[in-house]
Amino acid sequence: MKILMIEDDSTIAFAVKTYLNKHNIETIIYNNLSQTENLNFNDFDLILLDANLPDGSGFNFLKWLREFYDLPVIMLTVKDEDEYVIKGLSQGADDYITKPFSLPVLKARIDNVFSRKIKKVDELTFENLSLDFISKQASIDGIDLDLNLKEFAILEMLLENQDVNLLRKRILDYVWGYDFYEVNDNTLTVTIKRLRNKLGEYGKHIKTVRGIGYRWDNEKK
């Protein structure tokens, strides 16, 4: 796999390149948009794109990119407010991750996004419950659920790992990133409870595994 990373923070860029190269992912770094003017983006399998660059907006660049290319893009941002993230997703980003982030989590997101593109999977379903990865919208019987992005990410993780016990730390790390060190341990419990309520009858599929974490029970209704 060959990745293009457009990131002006040299410390972050070096750490990402070093880590991904160790996992046999070739990573090319550019620290501004002007350096990419003569690139053939089809030479890359995926782009890591910073939202705020010295010579322009990553969002505007993404909007332009989507007019000509369909390769996967993961936005890198220092903000995780829903409106800010949704702006990137609505302009064609396949996923996002907020800084600072865990390198293993970044790789997991890269693997997930790339795998979906290869398989051309834009949606995940369980009975009448559906997750749209493009819009980050969940629905039941075609009726949209009012999930925030963290609730969606937890539901996505559970459905992609059905009947697997997921450690609390793994969920916190994937959904909150490095921020989970500043998150109260009760935050995940409260978020899961809220997610169960929003899922209605499907909420019963989220099982608490005492001392471990949570599991999506694949048993049909």
Rank of each mutant, 00 (worst) to 15 (best):
D43I: 02
A108I: 04
D80W: 07
E219V: 13
E201K: 14
T11V: 12
N38V: 01
F126T: 00
D9I: 09
L131Y: 05
N32F: 04
F114L: 15
N186A: 08
R116L: 02
D146I: 06
V209T: 09
V105Y: 05
L199G: 03
P104E: 10
F41C: 05
E127N: 11
E219G: 08
F44P: 00
W64I: 09
L49F: 05
L199M: 09
R168L: 05
L129N: 04
F61R: 14
K150D: 07
K220N: 12
L46I: 02
D9M: 14
W176T: 00
E37V: 11
K220A: 11
W216P: 00
K17M: 11
L167V: 04
S130R: 15
E67H: 13
V105F: 09
K17F: 01
D179F: 07
Q162E: 07
I171Q: 10
L131D: 03
T208V: 13
N161V: 04
I206W: 07
T125S: 15
S135M: 13
L71F: 02
K169H: 08
N42P: 00
K169G: 03
V183Y: 12
V183W: 11
K119A: 07
D122W: 11
G56H: 13
N128D: 11
I212E: 10
L129E: 02
N128Y: 05
N184A: 12
L76G: 03
Y69C: 02
V209N: 10
Y214Q: 07
Q91I: 01
V183E: 14
L124A: 08
N40V: 04
D94K: 13
L49Q: 10
V190C: 03
G211F: 08
L53G: 05
H205A: 06
I192L: 09
P54K: 14
Y84H: 14
V164Y: 14
L53R: 12
D146Y: 08
K120Y: 01
V85H: 06
D43M: 08
D8Q: 13
R210Y: 09
L20P: 00
Y30E: 10
V85C: 07
N38T: 05
T77A: 09
T11Y: 12
L33T: 03
G203E: 08
Y214L: 09
V175C: 06
A108T: 11
N218C: 04
Y214D: 02
G213H: 09
L145G: 03
S130P: 00
D132K: 15
R66T: 00
V190Y: 07
I143F: 12
E26P: 00
D94C: 07
Y174A: 13
L158K: 10
F68G: 05
P100V: 03
E37W: 08
N112Y: 11
G211Q: 10
I154Y: 03
L39I: 05
I212F: 11
N128F: 02
L155T: 01
I206R: 13
L199V: 01
V183A: 15
V183I: 09
T77P: 01
V164F: 12
M5S: 09
T208H: 10
D94I: 04
K99S: 07
K169I: 06
Q35W: 07
A93M: 08
N161W: 07
A13E: 09
F61C: 06
R194G: 00
I154R: 08
E182M: 12
F152A: 11
S115E: 14
L166N: 08
